[in-house]
Simulated assay, not measured.
Amino acid sequence: MQHVSIIKIGGNIIDDKEATTRFLLKFSQVPGYKLLIHGGGKIATQIAERLGLKAQMVDGRRITDQSMLEVVTMVYGGLVNKQLVAGLQAKGCNAIGLTGADGNSVLAQKREVATIDYGFAGDIVAVNAQQISSLLEQQLTPVFAPLTYDTTGSMLNTNADTMAATIAWSLASRYNVHLIYCFEKKGVLSDPDNDNSVIPALTLPMYEQLKQQGIISKGMIPKLDNAYTALRKGVQRIIICHADELQTVVSTSTVSGTTLSL
């Protein structure tokens, strides 16, 4: 079965031009089929402020009203996405920038209001695995912005970690899928204040215990919840690592970051 590497790059790397440049070089050197999903970083907030719009965040998640939806669509789907695509082209990687709306790639629905109204936040309904496979088989490298769309024609702001995991398991019946989350930390940490306290291997029971103890918390929880769902749905390998370690993780047997298992 053909191998595909699905790599998600965090927003904090996107915010750092030097870190982004290093990452794009390493990503361009990943062999075989590959796909990139990127976060948004702080650029949308900065541009919103220039436009006189105040960003609203709850537990690290953006409230996306109509005005902010217009900003994130422009920034994530335009500025950030096309800068990444151009950077990859300069490194010999033939990339194509996409949102979920392009080619009917990722369909979502507006999140229902429970306790918090997140506005135009999208929960994924379906992934068009055939369309994404077609791009890969044309030797193109899809670069997805964290944007989806719904059946009414509205764009929706969608969590990039969720998007990466969902695309990964949607392709798992067609390919041997490896999912790699790259961000500014060395992996999942046992001590959030100690960047060297990496947990090299994390099983699902270990994760549940550490979550109950509050050792794993905040934004790491949805990332790991999505990752374990992906493992249960057929993704072969999932690693969470520092962006600078991507090439090591992909190309060698050297253990780096945190490897997840059930």
Rank of each mutant, 00 (worst) to 15 (best):
M1Q: 12
M1I: 13
M1K: 13
H3W: 12
I6A: 01
I9D: 04
G11Y: 05
I13M: 07
D15T: 09
D16H: 10
K17Q: 15
K17M: 15
T20L: 14
T20S: 11
T20R: 01
T20E: 00
R22N: 15
R22K: 15
L24N: 07
L24H: 06
L25V: 14
L25N: 11
K26M: 11
K26V: 08
Q29T: 12
P31L: 00
Y33I: 07
K34P: 03
L36Y: 03
H38W: 08
G39V: 05
G39D: 04
G41C: 10
A48V: 05
R50K: 15
K54M: 11
A55G: 09
Q56A: 11
M57S: 08
R61A: 10
R62H: 04
S67K: 14
M68G: 03
L69H: 05
E70Y: 12
L84S: 05
L84P: 03
A86L: 13
G87A: 06
L88H: 05
G100R: 00
N104G: 15
S105N: 08
L107V: 08
A108Y: 02
D117G: 06
F120H: 07
I124Y: 03
V125Q: 13
V125H: 10
N128P: 00
A129W: 02
E137N: 10
T141N: 03
T141G: 03
F144I: 04
F144S: 03
F144A: 06
D150V: 06
N159K: 02
A160H: 02
T162K: 01
A165I: 07
A165P: 05
W169K: 12
L171E: 02
Y175E: 01
H178F: 13
L179K: 06
L179C: 07
C182G: 00
F183G: 00
K186T: 15
G187F: 02
L189E: 00
S190N: 09
D191H: 11
D191N: 14
D191S: 13
P192H: 12
N196Y: 14
N196G: 13
S197T: 09
V198L: 06
L204Y: 14
P205W: 10
M206R: 13
M206G: 12
G214I: 08
I215C: 09
S217H: 10
K218L: 14
K218G: 12
G219N: 04
K223S: 00
K223H: 06
L224F: 02
N226Q: 11
L231N: 04
K233Q: 14
I240M: 02
C241V: 15
C241S: 10
T248E: 14
V250H: 03
G257A: 05
T259M: 15
T259S: 15
L260T: 04
L262P: 03
